[in-house]
Simulated scan of single mutants.
Amino acid sequence: MSSVSNTLIGFLNLLTLLASIPIIGGGLWMAKSTATCESFLQRPLMVLGFVILLISLAGFIGACFHVVWALWVYLVVMLFLIAALLAVTVFGFVVAGPGGGVEVPGRTYREYHLQNYSPWLRKRIENPNYWMTVRSCILGSKACAKIVTWTPVDYWTRDMSPVQSGCCKPPSACNYEAPMMTQDADCYKWNNDPNMLCYECDSCKAGVLEDVRRDWHKLSILNIVMVMLLIGIYFVGCCAFQNAKKADSYYPHGQSVMYKTRPKWNFY
């Protein structure tokens, strides 16, 4: 029974060690890619990958070779990792809870309003330095170029991503034949220059936050699954740690082996 837990924890940590490689690779890809505006996920993704790699290596060595100190480090770091994932999950649900789009009568797509999102997200997206980086990313992704050839019928029947809905067109409520004083402030900010469009509109910032909110919801669900898995591995690791301690206490100077069943005591 003692070898079962050690073998199991060694096998599970080998799997998590291998799984950390694509996680780190994904973080590196996001760092170099200009096609995604989710660079805020890059650093946490890489940190998570390296932490999983290190603790999996410690757990694998400790379980397979009965290294007590390696298993002790593995369990301590694993406990902090579980606590951190729980904190991030709760934070994600709280911060990314508010939001969602508003239906536009007669249209397939939705429109998004900045005031519907949490104050923490709004404060971050309204930071001029951060928004300039996001704006450059949206321009590089050519999200608006994909709908530039749409016909009026397409705008009535086809769906848009949150970024396209908020950044590539003025709000549907804008009426440029009516007095502008009574309309949404975003109507003033719209410009048909391909480099301007509605990139400075609050609706554009809201579209970006909607993408962030959706990604955070997916990550929060994934975090819950990972926390449950890590808790299971943690309990198996505790059993492996106890087995390694027993083996170390039984043979403090190493296990001695007798190679002859009937040794000769008389050498003459």
Rank of each mutant, 00 (worst) to 15 (best):
L229F: 15
K218P: 00
H217D: 01
V227C: 04
L219M: 04
A244H: 00
C239M: 13
G232K: 01
M228N: 03
Y234L: 06
W216Q: 01
Y250A: 04
K246N: 07
I231S: 06
G254E: 13
G232V: 03
S256C: 04
G254M: 12
N243F: 03
I231G: 04
L222H: 05
F235T: 13
P252G: 09
H217C: 03
H253V: 05
V227H: 09
M228I: 14
V257W: 12
P252S: 09
L222W: 12
K246T: 06
I231Y: 08
V236N: 10
N223W: 12
M226V: 08
I231Q: 06
P252R: 10
S249D: 08
I231A: 11
N243C: 05
M258G: 07
I221R: 12
Q255Y: 12
L219E: 02
A244D: 00
H253P: 00
L230K: 10
M228V: 14
I224E: 02
S256D: 06
V227T: 10
V236S: 04
V227L: 09
A244Y: 01
H217E: 02
H217Y: 14
G232H: 02
L230Y: 14
Q242D: 02
Q255D: 08
C239H: 15
L222C: 05
L222R: 09
P252Y: 11
A247I: 07
K245L: 07
S220C: 15
G254K: 13
P252V: 06
K246E: 03
F241N: 01
N243H: 07
C239N: 07
V227R: 09
N223P: 00
G254Q: 14
Q255G: 03
Q242W: 10
L230V: 00
Q242E: 03
G232E: 01
Y251F: 15
